[in-house]
Amino acid sequence: MLSNIRTIWEILRHSFRRPETIQYPEQKPYLAPRFRGRIILSRDPDGEERCVACYLCAAACPVDCIALQATEDGYGRRYPAFFRINFSRCILCGFCEEACPTLAIQLTPDYEMCEYDRQNLVYEKEDLLISGPGKYPDYNFYRVAGLAIAGKDKGEAENESEPVDTHTLLP
Protein backbone atom coordinates (compact mmCIF):
# COMPACT_ATOMS: atom_id res chain seq x y z
CA MET A 1 0.00 0.00 0.00
CA LEU A 2 2.68 2.39 1.11
CA SER A 3 4.79 1.52 -1.90
CA ASN A 4 1.90 2.12 -4.29
CA ILE A 5 1.34 5.55 -2.89
CA ARG A 6 5.02 6.30 -3.15
CA THR A 7 5.05 5.24 -6.81
CA ILE A 8 2.11 7.49 -7.62
CA TRP A 9 3.82 10.34 -5.81
CA GLU A 10 7.01 9.83 -7.79
CA ILE A 11 5.12 9.87 -11.07
CA LEU A 12 3.38 13.05 -10.09
CA ARG A 13 6.65 14.61 -9.10
CA HIS A 14 8.27 13.67 -12.45
CA SER A 15 5.46 15.28 -14.43
CA PHE A 16 6.82 18.63 -13.36
CA ARG A 17 10.46 17.97 -14.26
CA ARG A 18 12.24 18.95 -17.45
CA PRO A 19 11.97 16.02 -19.95
CA GLU A 20 15.19 14.16 -20.94
CA THR A 21 13.71 13.29 -24.31
CA ILE A 22 14.85 15.53 -27.12
CA GLN A 23 13.31 16.07 -30.52
CA TYR A 24 15.70 13.99 -32.56
CA PRO A 25 16.49 14.49 -35.46
CA GLU A 26 15.68 18.21 -35.26
CA GLN A 27 17.60 18.36 -32.01
CA LYS A 28 20.94 16.52 -31.54
CA PRO A 29 22.17 15.17 -28.23
CA TYR A 30 25.61 15.94 -26.81
CA LEU A 31 28.05 13.10 -27.38
CA ALA A 32 31.40 12.82 -25.62
CA PRO A 33 34.39 12.66 -27.97
CA ARG A 34 35.05 9.11 -26.84
CA PHE A 35 31.56 7.97 -27.84
CA ARG A 36 31.81 4.74 -29.80
CA GLY A 37 30.05 5.07 -33.12
CA ARG A 38 30.84 4.59 -36.81
CA ILE A 39 34.31 3.19 -37.39
CA ILE A 40 36.87 4.90 -39.60
CA LEU A 41 40.39 4.13 -40.81
CA SER A 42 42.77 7.04 -40.35
CA ARG A 43 45.95 8.24 -42.02
CA ASP A 44 49.33 8.92 -40.45
CA PRO A 45 50.76 12.46 -40.22
CA ASP A 46 52.43 11.94 -43.62
CA GLY A 47 49.05 11.31 -45.17
CA GLU A 48 49.65 7.60 -45.79
CA GLU A 49 47.26 4.86 -44.77
CA ARG A 50 47.92 3.94 -41.17
CA CYS A 51 46.54 0.43 -41.28
CA VAL A 52 49.30 -2.14 -41.78
CA ALA A 53 46.86 -5.04 -42.24
CA CYS A 54 48.02 -6.88 -39.14
CA TYR A 55 44.64 -8.59 -38.61
CA LEU A 56 44.59 -7.79 -34.88
CA CYS A 57 41.33 -5.84 -35.00
CA ALA A 58 39.72 -8.73 -36.86
CA ALA A 59 40.98 -11.13 -34.19
CA ALA A 60 39.69 -8.91 -31.39
CA CYS A 61 36.25 -8.48 -32.93
CA PRO A 62 33.75 -10.53 -30.92
CA VAL A 63 31.28 -10.78 -33.79
CA ASP A 64 33.93 -11.36 -36.48
CA CYS A 65 32.62 -8.54 -38.66
CA ILE A 66 36.01 -7.30 -39.91
CA ALA A 67 37.57 -8.98 -42.93
CA LEU A 68 40.67 -7.78 -44.73
CA GLN A 69 43.55 -8.93 -46.85
CA ALA A 70 47.12 -7.73 -46.48
CA THR A 71 49.26 -6.70 -49.41
CA GLU A 72 52.48 -4.74 -49.94
CA ASP A 73 53.66 -1.93 -52.11
CA GLY A 74 56.86 -2.40 -54.09
CA TYR A 75 58.99 -1.16 -51.18
CA GLY A 76 57.71 -3.46 -48.46
CA ARG A 77 55.10 -1.20 -46.89
CA ARG A 78 52.14 -3.31 -45.87
CA TYR A 79 48.56 -2.13 -46.20
CA PRO A 80 45.14 -3.73 -46.67
CA ALA A 81 44.16 -4.68 -50.22
CA PHE A 82 40.59 -4.66 -49.02
CA PHE A 83 39.15 -3.85 -45.63
CA ARG A 84 35.52 -4.60 -44.92
CA ILE A 85 33.34 -4.00 -41.90
CA ASN A 86 29.88 -5.44 -41.82
CA PHE A 87 28.12 -2.81 -39.69
CA SER A 88 24.96 -4.86 -39.62
CA ARG A 89 26.90 -7.14 -37.28
CA CYS A 90 29.12 -4.61 -35.53
CA ILE A 91 28.20 -3.99 -31.89
CA LEU A 92 30.44 -0.90 -31.61
CA CYS A 93 32.32 -2.37 -28.68
CA GLY A 94 35.59 -0.66 -29.58
CA PHE A 95 37.74 -3.77 -29.13
CA CYS A 96 39.21 -3.24 -32.58
CA GLU A 97 40.39 0.22 -31.65
CA GLU A 98 41.95 -1.13 -28.49
CA ALA A 99 43.72 -3.90 -30.38
CA CYS A 100 45.07 -1.72 -33.16
CA PRO A 101 48.82 -1.27 -32.76
CA THR A 102 48.96 1.61 -35.25
CA LEU A 103 45.99 3.68 -34.04
CA ALA A 104 44.52 3.29 -37.52
CA ILE A 105 41.07 2.08 -36.66
CA GLN A 106 39.04 4.49 -34.56
CA LEU A 107 35.44 4.78 -33.42
CA THR A 108 33.81 8.17 -33.95
CA PRO A 109 30.82 9.93 -32.37
CA ASP A 110 28.72 9.39 -35.48
CA TYR A 111 25.90 6.93 -35.20
CA GLU A 112 23.62 7.99 -38.01
CA MET A 113 24.06 5.09 -40.37
CA CYS A 114 20.57 3.62 -40.77
CA GLU A 115 19.79 1.94 -44.06
CA TYR A 116 16.67 0.39 -45.49
CA ASP A 117 18.74 -2.32 -47.10
CA ARG A 118 21.01 -4.27 -44.81
CA GLN A 119 23.44 -4.86 -47.63
CA ASN A 120 24.28 -1.14 -47.56
CA LEU A 121 25.72 -1.57 -44.08
CA VAL A 122 28.70 -3.38 -45.54
CA TYR A 123 31.47 -0.76 -45.64
CA GLU A 124 34.56 -1.21 -47.77
CA LYS A 125 37.91 0.52 -47.35
CA GLU A 126 36.83 3.41 -49.58
CA ASP A 127 33.95 4.04 -47.17
CA LEU A 128 36.10 3.76 -44.07
CA LEU A 129 39.30 5.60 -44.90
CA ILE A 130 39.34 9.28 -43.93
CA SER A 131 41.92 11.82 -44.99
CA GLY A 132 43.31 12.75 -41.57
CA PRO A 133 44.82 11.18 -38.45
CA GLY A 134 41.58 11.22 -36.43
CA LYS A 135 41.95 11.36 -32.66
CA TYR A 136 45.71 10.83 -32.64
CA PRO A 137 47.51 13.51 -34.63
CA ASP A 138 51.12 12.39 -34.09
CA TYR A 139 51.66 8.65 -34.15
CA ASN A 140 53.33 7.10 -37.14
CA PHE A 141 53.95 3.37 -36.79
CA TYR A 142 56.46 3.06 -39.61
CA ARG A 143 58.69 5.71 -37.95
CA VAL A 144 59.14 3.36 -34.98
CA ALA A 145 59.10 0.00 -36.72
CA GLY A 146 62.27 -1.68 -37.96
CA LEU A 147 60.86 -2.51 -41.39
CA ALA A 148 62.32 -0.46 -44.23
CA ILE A 149 59.80 1.27 -46.48
CA ALA A 150 60.05 3.82 -49.28
CA GLY A 151 61.73 6.90 -47.83
CA LYS A 152 62.89 5.18 -44.64
CA ASP A 153 65.83 2.84 -44.91
CA LYS A 154 67.25 0.53 -42.26
CA GLY A 155 68.65 2.49 -39.36
CA GLU A 156 66.52 5.52 -40.08
CA ALA A 157 63.67 4.80 -37.71
CA GLU A 158 63.47 6.47 -34.31
CA ASN A 159 66.16 5.36 -31.91
CA GLU A 160 68.01 3.16 -34.40
CA SER A 161 71.70 3.04 -35.15
CA GLU A 162 73.24 2.72 -38.60
CA PRO A 163 73.01 -0.76 -40.11
CA VAL A 164 75.86 -3.05 -39.10
CA ASP A 165 78.75 -3.39 -41.52
CA THR A 166 79.33 -7.15 -41.38
CA HIS A 167 82.62 -6.83 -43.24
CA THR A 168 84.49 -4.89 -40.61
CA LEU A 169 86.49 -6.61 -37.91
CA LEU A 170 86.56 -3.55 -35.67
CA PRO A 171 84.52 -3.78 -32.51
Binding site: D64, C65, A67, L68, R84, N86, S88
Partner: peptide, 12 residues
Protein backbone atom coordinates in the same frame (compact mmCIF):
# COMPACT_ATOMS: atom_id res chain seq x y z
CA UNK B 1 38.12 -14.08 -37.97
CA UNK B 2 35.84 -12.36 -40.42
CA UNK B 3 33.09 -14.96 -40.43
CA UNK B 4 30.38 -12.34 -40.74
CA UNK B 5 32.25 -10.09 -43.15
CA UNK B 6 34.32 -12.22 -45.53
CA UNK B 7 31.39 -12.93 -47.86
CA UNK B 8 29.43 -9.79 -47.00
CA UNK B 9 30.41 -8.05 -50.23
CA UNK B 10 28.43 -10.70 -52.08
CA UNK B 11 25.62 -11.17 -49.62
CA UNK B 12 25.28 -9.67 -46.18
Amino acid sequence: TGRTAMHADIDV
